[in-house]
Structure formats: structure tokens, C-alpha cells
Write a protein that binds this DNA or RNA. Structure first.
Length: 946
RNA sequence: GCGGGGGUCGCCAAGCCUGGUCAACGGCGUGGGGCUUAGGACCCCAUCCCUUAGGGGUUCGUGGGUUCGAAUCCCACCUCCCGCACCA
């Protein structure tokens, strides 16, 4: 970090220029960045997104807006306590990540077993990084989502949402960790990422003989019951008889827990080994066929009921299991082998491209030799998919024959349900292990609280929020709408973790994405809490009703809460002044959740005038072309980047990284280049001014001032639309190139021109690189702060079309001449330039006018017929120059090319490297030994090289 | 699979909505020159191919189509990225 960066930080801080108060009547801009989650240090991804916010904030401030940019910290949720817990268990991976990736000192990590400490540590270091980067934040409004006052705010929010019918109760299956007693989301898993519950069918096979009891088999393919030949159990597995909802079921021991977690009443009454079941006969549902129970080691007692029925014709596992038994590969009692030998696969589905026994085809194709071959997984998946989509039920399937398998499945389920032969169990198709190390299963959670995002009326209202807002970049708009359509009810509370309890049901804690939807409103008043103008306990729901909705009288609310009337009114004023948020910028990944939730909740709770006004997103950040990932150590903390490149280097690199929804690639090389480019501003400006002189304006000055007009315009418009990259690219690089041209072009740069342009330039780049701007400004001897200076105005830079077009001509002549010299390799020592005659220029202008539908082109051609200029050459020239340029040239009226080029002759000579002289075609004095003058056309002088 | 966004001259990346000004902005890289004791920084030139008079050829994921004319519009395909829920 440069020394001057520290200096300016202190100046800004001492002058409190980022502390913003409501000033009724003054235009305001309220900008926000979604508060970051404090389970780790901020990284350059945060920095990328947040830098864009600060740039916008600084831009608006310079435009004269009263700007509020607040900041807060997200602590809600289970991730922080989860990390502490794992550390306390001695998890080396977690510890290592703290030390090596996050860069936490050993002594601090010790204390991370306390989640509060962990979060406060990261909050502390992150706050320092944000501050040192020069973000123009009003820190008086800072909070954490576990602060008591914030919890009061969430209380209010959820009470009101519930009253309005947006919070509802429901029952839903979840992946459950019995240790944590909490749902286990994807990010909480050690194993089984992306696995979600699937609905299995439980088919009831009546055990023949003895008392009435059911052997219950799990399957995804109940329609294959017509091909069942036997039932499998694991011979070593633990099985039980249990009373399930009043019936005697035989299932694996682990199935009983799951059943009772899935709203069944289940109690174990007897226990035995799987081998004890082998040899029993059971009656298949619907078909009524009697099937033997046989042993198979591929059966997993942890999955569903630990009992499956066998369809060897269509299930590769079953097919191999049967062969294993018949061919003596499986360990099994002789009686079972005898039973197995009588069984033959029963084909029940016909499918093109397969034989009668598709399972056999799949097994042979893969060279599978026994039922423990892992290739059976693939075989099963492929066959299942093929049969489900393309298979047709055969003759032997009774009233289902001829149906597509997909249809038959539904019908079979219906029928079995009707006959009470089928039940349902939610199960995970793959092993899922919680980060705490416990194996998860599916639990049906009752009476969960949901945000009712399915509500069509709410969806519709939310769409109007989006429609009414500015949404940048425009390609993101569609994503919001499809998200709104796609969202279903969202479970908004959990049983564990940090956060706010549901006010009416203290068992539940408001979940992290659900407590961060309208908190921007809290920023408007949080400074009163922090400034101890009131106690958090005084923040009754009625207080927020008054502050945010204007309900109730100040006198009444003041009396009720004990908050001073004066304070209460001031808070209300702050809210009314600042709300809504004018621009909220985040990474695009938040569109399908946070940003859309944000829109939903505002639609639900706020009047239209307080709906969000601006949504903006940017892409994700990659590091040297790789996706950021802590586990692969592709990770750069904000602090680290800041130390390395300085605040402005970091800011500029990120600002130039990408626009729109494109992902940005962080490259160290790039950051170095940009940093040194910024550094070189100092000598560039210094030298420029030192070499300048006091003189009258000439063409080059008029040109530069006019061009800057255009630059200001583009930068301003780009910033308004959050096109940060485009804005900085123009503000820094294009203006730089403009000045370079000027320095080269002007014989001696004019001090006044340069000073004015430099001062404007410094302000133009100030939102992006504020430290450098302040430093440059003070180095130039100016007193005021750039941060609070006025945004450059185009008014100070008169457009000068003649000057701009003149320079275009000069540049074009240089380009043409160089091109020509390159082609003819022979050494030349003099270039003669012939500018077109007045007649030709006149002709050109008339023709251009006729293009726009003015006079008739034929008539123009006839008028100039005697001048000796071929019409097709002029027409072709117009095409070459382009519509826009022709328009600009014609608009100038008389444009004296000869004057421009003859005065530029010394410059041209310098640029080209040989002597240059300029003549006008048709002039008496013109020397034209090679007869080239006749070829001169407007804006396309002819050349003679010798 | 579903939803959203992309594929441009070595790399990054503008342009595309509103067709012609596009061999296609800008940055980086590379080559050459200047400055300098030298290096870096800085400044200038060049950087698809061919071309001894400013010209020509072939390009914008692939293949078709519309048009006098397409990187830009339409269709199909290939391919990459993001999101897909009880989780920040």
C-alpha cells in the first residue's frame, strides 16, 4: 500500500465525509452491497462486487447526491457454529484451512471453537480490509445480524409477514442428521453432495403361513411386479418384525427408524438375521404369485427396507444374483440353491434393441461376472432409463398390457394403493454423511414454516417490483422473471444455528436467506441504536410499524416504547429520506435467491414508493482462469490482494476485469500492469505540465477539449448503468490516449488546456482510484478534496466539430501515407499532398445532402458534370468514409482542408519521417509533375511521393 | 434434465438489440525504434495473409437461410459458464 493511501484514509475519516444524514429536499442515492457471511475472510470476489458499489457511490457523491453506503455483517446460520464444532472435534482439515488459506494466526485459531469469537475475528479483519480499500461507508450504521436490535427488526418483519399470510406451515421431507437434529443441506455434507430424497414405493408381500405379517420390499419400479420371481434379503443383515401403523411388517432394523421419522408409528417387536427369512414363501401384491425369499449380498439393509423383490429379466442385479445362486457362487443353504434353480427370468417389458431378457443383454455387454461387480450400477441405470421411456408392457401384465412403462407405473401404484398393498418411503439414492460424520436419512418434518413464494398473487406483485426497477445488465432481467416463476415455498426457519427466533414459535430460528430480505431499511435507523439513543428492548413491533409503514402516531408510539419523540421522529425522517435502495449490486449467483427474495419481501411489506429502484449484478471471479475454491487453494483474500497491489491497484484491476454478467479473471500480471500504469500517472502529468507553455488556443487545444466532452459523456452514461469496466476504460485509457495525441500534435502544449484536462481527468477517474486522484490533485497544488469535488461537466468542454473533423483528417492522412510508404519499399524523400478543389468539396456536400432525400441525385450529378469528377468515385468515397463521417463533414458547411493540412505539414512530416508539402488541386501555383492533383477528393487527398 | 448467459483476429475483451462507417475499439503479449550508463517505467510504430501508389484475399463456434449487403437478423447443431432450494 502506498504511503499516501494511508494519509488520505485519515483525511476522509477525520472529515467524516462518508457519514450521511437525511437532508430533506436534497437528492439522495442509497447504495448497498449484500452483507457478507462471516465464516471466513473477505476475498477478492467480495472485493470485485463491492468495489463496483463504491465506485457508483463515489460517482453519485461527486454528482452532488447525498450518498449513503452502509455496511453490515451476516452471522446468521449454521455454518459458523458448524466450523467451530468441527474444530472442537479436532478436524485437521478445518484447522488447516483457517491457518493456511484464511491466514489466521495460530493463537487466534485456538479460540475459534467459540463461534461468536470466530465470527467476530473475521468481522474485525474484514472491516479493516474494507476500510483500507477506501470504501466510502458510513460505519455508524454497521451491525451484525445477531445484534439484539436487529433481532427485534426481524421479529417485526416475520410477525407482519405472517399476519399478511406470507408465512405458512407445511410438512416436507428433508435430509436429516440425527446428531445435529437438523436438515443437512448440500454444503453441510461430507459425502453425498447433490443427493436429494426420492420417493420409493414399499410393496407389501404377505408372508405365507403363520400369523398375518408383511414382508415389505422397496422399489422404484412397482410395475415390474409382474416379472417378480423371488424376494431378496441380505443373509447377514439385521431384520426385525415391527408394528407399523397397526400391521406386522418385516423390514431391516434401520428401516424402522426411518419409518418412524416419516410419520409412521413403528415399534420393533422381534429381531432376527436375514438368513432366518430365507426359504419363506410370500404372496406378491396384485399378481398373488407365491415367491420364495432368497439370500443376496448385494442387498443393502441401510437402503429403504433392506428387502427387495427380484425381477431378473429386467434388473441386472437380480439377474446376476440369481445366476450366482444357481451356479453356486453365492454362499447359501442347499435348500435355497434348489429353490433358485427352479426360477427363470420372466420378461414383462418389450423394448426395441433388446432381447426378451434385457438384463442379460446389459450384463453380457459389460462382461459382468457376478453380483458384486460395480458395473451393475451403470447397467441398472441405463436399462431403467431405456425401459421407462421406451418400454411397453407385455401380454403377461394383465390390464396394463400395451401401456407405456411410464404410464403403467402410475396405474400400478394407484391400484396397489387402493388395495392397501403399497406404502411410500422417502429415501436417499446415495449415501449422505453430514459434516459431523453422521449418516443422514430422510425425515419428514412437520409443521415447518415456509415463505409462501408459490402464491401467484405474490409472484405477480414481485414481477411489478422488477419491472419498475432499473435492472443492470439488461441480460439479467429474464433471470429474475424465471426465478419468480420457478420459486416454490421456501422453508424459512431452522432448528439450530445463529439467528433470530420466530417470535411466535421459539423452537425455530429464521434461516439465513430469509432474515436478509429487507434489512436495508434497518440501515436507515441503525445509527440511533449504535449511538445509544434508545435501547433495543424499546424496538417494539409498533415502533417499526411507525418507522417503516407510517402506522400510528409518533406520540402514541413514543409513549408505548419509551423512545423519545424527538428520536422517533428523526428515525422516521431518516427512513423516509433514504428509502428505497437506489442501487443494490451483487454477484449474479444471488439472482435466483437473495435478490429475488429481496424483491418478494419488499412487494409484501412496503408501499410502492419504497420498492427497490436498482438491481445490478456482475459475474463471478476466477483466479488465473480457475474457479475460486478454498479446498483447491485457489483463493486470494481481499487483505492479501490489498497488501500486494494497494487500494487503487486492487480497485482498478477489479473495475477493469469485466462488465455485464461475464466472469472476471483475476490475473496477478494484470494487477501489476494496472498498478504500475496508475503509478505512471504521476510523472506523466508532472512532465506534461512542466513542458507546457502559456499561449493562445489552437486547433489541437480545441480538439482536445472537444474530445474530452465526449469522454465525460460516455463515462457518465456508463456509470449510470453500472458499466464500470467500460467507464474506467474510457476514463483512464481513452483519455490517456487523447492526451498523448495532443502532446504529440501540439507544437508546444498549452498550459491552460493541459491543466484543465488533467484536473478533469483526475476527477473522472476519482471514483475508481480515489487515493491516486487525491494525491495527484494535491500535487497539482489544489486544496479541496477530490472525493467531494464536482463531477466533470460537459458544459466546460465545448464541442468543436471542426476541430474534431480536422484531426480525423490529419490522422487519416498519416495512416494513408504510412500505408503507402510501407507498400512501396523504395526510399522516398518527399510527399506532396493535393487537397481536393472547392468544386469537388461542393459536389461531395451536395451529394451527401441528396442521400438524405433532399435534392435529386441525378440533378446533382448533372450540375457537376462539367467539373471532370466522375460521379461513381464520389459515391464510392461516401461509402468508404461512412455515413456518420460524411454527415459530420457535410454538417460543417465549408471545411477548409487545405488550411488544416498545410498548417499540419510540419507535424505530418515528423510523423511520416519525410518532407511534406501541401497543394490545392486547381490552384494556379500547384506543382503537379505526376498529374496526381486530379485524383484528390474531399477527405481523401491524393499523394505524390518522390 | 430445467432455467439464465456466453462462444469475436495469440490472450483478455468491445461491437451484435437499432444490418453497410468492421480486418473489426481498447488492454496485454510479441517484434522494431526512441529515451536511458544499463534494465524497468515512459513515448512512437507494427502485429490475419498477399501487395513497389494508397489495392486485393480470407475471417467473428459449425452448417444452412434472409438480404444488393451479416460478427450483427432467422433456423438447426456443437460447445463453455452460472443457478437448480431447507444452503450461504
Amino acid at each position: 500500500m502506498a504511503q499516501y493511501e494511508k494519509y488520505w484514509l485519515k483525511v476522509w475519516n477525520d472529515k467524516r465525509i462518508f457519514e450521511s444524514e437525511a437532508v430533506p429536499g436534497r437528492k439522495k442515492a442509497f447504495v448497498t452491497f449484500p452483507f457478507p457471511y462471516m465464516n471466513g475472510p473477505l476475498h477478492i470476489g467480495h472485493c470485485f462486487t463491492a468495489t463496483r458499489v463504491d465506485i457508483y457511490a463515489r460517482f453519485k457523491r461527486m454528482q452532488g447526491y447525498n450518498v449513503l453506503f452502509p455496511w453490515a455483517w451476516h452471522w446468521t446460520g449454521e455454518s459458523i457454529p458448524g466450523m467451530s464444532y468441527r474444530l472442537s472435534l479436532g478436524d485437521e482439515g478445518v484447522r488447516k484451512a483457517f491457518l493456511e488459506i484464511d491466514g489466521v494466526p495460530e493463537s487466534e485459531v485456538e479460540r475459534f471453537v467459540d463461534p461468536e469469537y470466530l465470527a467476530s475475528y473475521y468481522t474485525r479483519v474484514s472491516r479493516e480490509a474494507v476500510k483500507d480499500t477506501g470504501f466510502s461507508v458510513d460505519w455508524r450504521r454497521e451491525f451484525r445480524t445477531v445484534d439484539p436490535a436487529f433481532k427485534k427488526f426481524i421479529d417485526w418483519q416475520y410477525l407482519r409477514l405472517r399476519e399478511l399470510g406470507y408465512v405458512v406451515q407445511g410438512t416436507h421431507p428433508v435430509v436429516w442428521c440425527p446428531h445435529d437434529e437438523s436438515p443437512t443441506g448440500d454444503h453441510d455434507r461430507m459425502e453425498g453432495e447433490g443427493v436429494s430424497p426420492e420417493e420409493f414405493n414399499l410393496l407389501k408381500f404377505e408372508v405365507e403361513g403363520g400369523k398375518k405379517r408383511w414382508l415389505v420390499a422397496g422399489t422404484l419400479r412397482p410395475e415390474t411386479i409382474f416379472g417378480a420371481t423371488n424376494v431378496w434379503v441380505h443373509p447377514e443383515g439385521k431384520y426385525v418384525e415391527a408394528n407399523v401403523d397397526g400391521e406386522a411388517w418385516v423390514v431391516s432394523q434401520s428401516a424402522v427408524t426411518k419409518l418412524s421419522e416419516q410419520l409412521h408409528d413403528a415399534k420393533i417387536t422381534d429381531e432376527f438375521k436375514g438368513s432366518d427369512l430365507v426359504g419363506l414363501k410370500v404372496k406378491a401384491p396384485i399378481t398373488g404369485k407365491s415367491l420364495p425369499v432368497l439370500p443376496a449380498t448385494f442387498v443393502d439393509t441401510e437402503i429403504v427396507t433392506g428387502v427387495v423383490y427380484s425381477v431378473p429379466a429386467h434388473a441386472p442385479y437380480d439377474y446376476m444374483g440369481l445366476l450366482d445362486l444357481q451356479e453356486g457362487r453365492a454362499k447359501a443353504p442347499p435348500a435355497a440353491v434348489l429353490l433358485a434353480k427352479e426360477l427363470k427370468p420372466i420378461s414383462l417389458i418389450s423394448i426395441k434393441g433388446y432381447s426378451d431378457i434385457p438384463a442379460e443383454d446389459e450384463v453380457k455387454k459389460r462382461g459382468i461376472k457376478d453380483s458384486n461387480d460395480p458395473k451393475l450400477e451403470d447397467a441398472t441405470a441405463e436399462l431403467y432409463k431405456a425401459e421407462f421411456h421406451r418400454g411397453v408392457m407385455k401380454e403377461n401384465t394383465d390390464r396394463f398390457k400395451g401401456m407405456k412403462v411410464s404410464d403403467a407405473k402410475e396405474k400400478v401404484i394407484e391400484e396397489m394403493k387402493r388395495k392397501n398393498l403399497l406404502s411410500i418411503m422417502q429415501e436417499l439414492p446415495e449415501r449422505v454423511v453430514c459434516k459431523c460424520g453422521t449418516r443422514c436419512y430422510v425425515k419428514i418434518l412437520e409443521n415447518q414454516w415456509f415463505l409462501n413464494y408459490s402464491d401467484p398473487a405474490w409472484k405477480e406483485l414481485t414481477k411489478t417490483v422488477i419491472r419498475a426497477a432499473n435492472v443492470y445488465p439488461e441480460q439479467s432481467l429474464e433471470w429474475y422473471f424465471s426465478t419468480i416463476d420457478w420459486l416454490r415455498n421456501w422453508p424459512c426457519a431452522r432448528k439450530s444455528g445463529m439467528g433470530t427466533k420466530l417470535p411466535w414459535d421459539k423452537e425455530w430460528i429464521v434461516e439465513t436467506l430469509s432474515d436478509s430480505t429487507i434489512y436495508m431499511a434497518f440501515y436507515t435507523i441503525c445509527q440511533f441504536v449504535n449511538g445509544e439513543k434508545l435501547q433495543f428492548g424499546q424496538l417494539l413491533p409498533e415502533v417499526f410499524d411507525y418507522l417503516l409503514m407510517g402506522k400510528g402516531s409518533d406520540a402514541h408510539v413514543s409513549k408505548l416504547s419509551g423512545i423519545e419523540m424527538k428520536v422517533l421522529k428523526a428515525m422516521r425522517n431518516e427512513f423516509l429520506y433514504w428509502y428505497p435502495v437506489d442501487m443494490r449490486n451483487s454477484a449474479k449467483e444471488l439472482i435466483p435467491n437473495h435478490l429475488t427474495f429481496y424483491a418478494f419481501h419488499h412487494a409484501a411489506l412496503f408501499e410502492q414508493k419504497h420498492w427497490p429502484r436498482g438491481f445490478s449484478v456482475n459475474g463471478m471471479i476466477q483466479i488465473e482462469g480457475q474457479k475460486m475454491s478454498k479446498s483447491r487453494n485457489v483463493f486470494i483474500t481481499w487483505r492479501h490482494a490489498l497488501e500486494q497491489y494497494g487500494a487503487d491497484g486492487l480497485r482498478a484491476t477489479l473495475a477493469l476485469a469485466a462488465d455485464g454478467m461475464d466472469d472476471a479473471d483475476w490475473k496477478a500480471k494484470n494487477a501489476e500492469d494496472i498498478s504500475s500504469k496508475i503509478d505512471s500517472l504521476f510523472p506523466f502529468i508532472e512532465k506534461g505540465l512542466a513542458n507546457s507553455t502559456e499561449r493562445e488556443k489552437e486547433l489541437s487545444d480545441r480538439w482536445l477539449l472537444s474530445v474530452v466532452h465526449g469522454r465525460i459523456d460516455v463515462v457518465t452514461k456508463s456509470l449510470e448503468e453500472m458499466k464500470i469496466r467500460k467507464a474506467l476504460s474510457v476514463a483512464l485509457l481513452d483519455v490517456w490516449n487523447d492526451i498523448r495525441w495532443y502532446l504529440r500534435r501540439a507544437e508546444k502544449p498549452r498550459y491552460e488546456t493541459l491543466k484543465m484536462v488533467f484536473e478533469t481527468w483526475i476527477r473522472l477517474v476519482a471514483p475508481f482510484i480515489p487515493f491516486t486522484s487525491e494525491e495527484l490533485n494535491s500535487k497539482m497544488g489544489n486544496k479541496g478534496l477530490i472525493t467531494t469535488a464536482d463531477w466533470p461537466s460537459v458544459v466546460d468542454f465545448p464541442l468543436d466539430e471542426a476541430a474534431e473533423v480536422s484531426e480525423l483528417l490529419v490522422a487519416k492522412v498519416i495512416e494513408d501515407a504510412r500505408n503507402l510508404l510501407k507498400i512501396i519499399k523504395e526510399q522516398k524523400k518527399r510527399l506532396t499532398i493535393y487537397v481536393s478543389s472547392d468544386v469537388a468539396s461542393e459536389y461531395f456536400r451536395e451529394l451527401a445532402k441528396s442521400e438524405k432525400g433532399g435534392s435529386d441525385r441525378g440533378e446533382v450529378i448533372r450540375k457537376f458534370a462539367s467539373s471532370g469528377i466522375k460521379p461513381e468515385r464520389v459515391i464510392k468515397l461516401q461509402y468508404e468514409l461512412g455515413e456518420e463521417l460524411v454527415r459530420r463533414i457535410s454538417a460543417l458547411g465549408r471545411f477548409d482542408e487545405f488550411a488544416v493540412l498545410s498548417s499540419a505539414a510540419p507535424f505530418l512530416s515528423n510523423e511520416i519521417g519525410i518532407e511534406v508539402r501541401v497543394f490545392k488541386a486547381g490552384d494556379k501555383k500547384t506543382e503537379d509533375p505526376a498529374n496526381k492533383a486530379k485524383d484528390a477528393l474531399p477527405f481523401k487527398p491524393s499523394f505524390y511521393l518522390e
